[in-house]
């Protein structure tokens, strides 16, 4: 009989050989749990992320922007669906995954606990938040778990469109009236630091990094991805004449990267722990949708079983 130790060695050999792990393959329980945590967190982020953006659909400034925003938020819902399905391949049902979100057991990206106060925030979310997410997601197209990697390929295509449309919103505002330019700068000021926090704690303090790297769930560390994002985004801000709100930001010739100021980790943990500006509202909205939808889901189930019974009787 094969020992668990041997199975683990085989599993690791497969990963080292860049073969994908598929749902029916043997995997260490910790690998499965780590993935369930990460994929479900990702799914929840897509779904909760619909709220701050949905907040501006009815107020979008013209019909074209409204159509783009509707399509974008619809994409996020679609991403949520594939990712809940990816979780199901790991043996957890959508119901239980959603219950974990609503009970507060599962987390979602803290960035969605910040409010969208002006139209420019819709631009900032696309440009900065989706821009930061892409850094992570491009890496995840090569993650070791097959269904997650494949879902990510499709998601990345859509996210890169989201990033471009967000940047375009901000670019148009920054060339607009003085009030619009202020709106754009204000959005950058408010979203810059929370976007950097999206990459998570520094490598030395990240609870899951080492194991995730060994199993190739992650392939680049939090700090590496954050640096990539900063290097790219600072230049994009310059092009449209906006100022990144970090007095310590400067190009480091020797490293070939931008140096940046320290992130306020107190704020980060505060929001993670539930005390961000919108944590309460976001959860309340998700719980209300779930509760108000209960009779709808029950009706669908009742009707389907009635129909099945009739079919059987016939």
């Amino acid at each position: 009989m094969t020992e668990v130790k041997d199975l683990e060695a085989l599993f690791q050999a497969k990963i080292d050989a860049e073969q994908k792990i598929e749902p029916k393959d043997w995997m260490p329980e910790k690998y499965r749990k780590n993935l369930v945590r990460q994929v479900s967190q990702h799914a929840h982020s897509e779904v909760v992320g619909m709220l701050p953006e949905g907040n501006w659909i009815t107020r979008a400034p013209n019909l074209r922007r409204k159509a783009i925003l509707l399509a974008k938020v619809q994409d996020e819902a679609g991403h949520g669906l594939y990712l809940y399905s990816a979780c199901e391949t790991l043996g957890v049902t959508r119901e239980s995954t959603i219950d974990d979100l609503l009970s507060g057991k599962a987390k979602y990206s803290s960035i969605f606990n910040y409010p969208t106060l002006t139209w420019a925030d819709i631009g900032a979310i696309g440009w900065l938040v989706d821009g930061a997410a892409i850094m992570n997601q491009v890496m995840l197209t090569r993650t070791s778990y097959g269904p997650y990697a494949r879902a990510m390929v499709r998601i990345c295509k859509e996210e890169s469109f989201h990033q471009r449309q967000g940047y375009e919103i901000i670019a148009v505002l920054s060339k607009g009236t003085p009030e619009q330019k202020d709106m754009a700068q204000d959005a950058l000021n408010r979203w810059w630091w929370p976007s950097l926090m999206m990459f998570g704690p520094h490598d030395g303090e990240s609870a899951h990094t080492a194991e995730s790297m060994k199993w190739k769930i992650k392939r680049e560390s939090n700090d590496e991805l954050r640096q990539k994002f900063i290097d790219r985004t600072v230049q994009q801000a310059e092009v449209i004449g906006l100022k990144v709100p970090d007095p310590d930001l400067k190009w480091n010739e020797e490293r070939g990267h931008y140096d940046h100021g320290e992130i306020d980790w107190k704020e980060f943990w505060n929001v993670v722990e539930g005390n961000g500006p919108c944590n309460h509202e976001r959860m309340k909205a998700r719980i209300a949708a779930h509760e108000n939808g209960r009779w709808v889901r029950e009706a669908a189930v009742a009707y389907a079983s009635k129909k099945a019974r009739k079919k059987q009787a016939a």
């Binding site: 949905g54 659909i57 409204k66 509707l70 399509a71 619809q74 819902a77 949520g80 949708a289």
Partner: peptide
């Protein structure tokens, strides 16, 4: 579009948003 993010189940959220988009076009 007011339903977006508040639908009774994710599939319906998508269906209503999709429909909102059809009508907008």
């Amino acid at each position: 579009s007011e339903w977006c993010g508040h639908g009774p189940v994710l599939e319906e959220d998508i269906a209503l948003t999709n429909r909102a988009l059809d009508h907008l076009g």
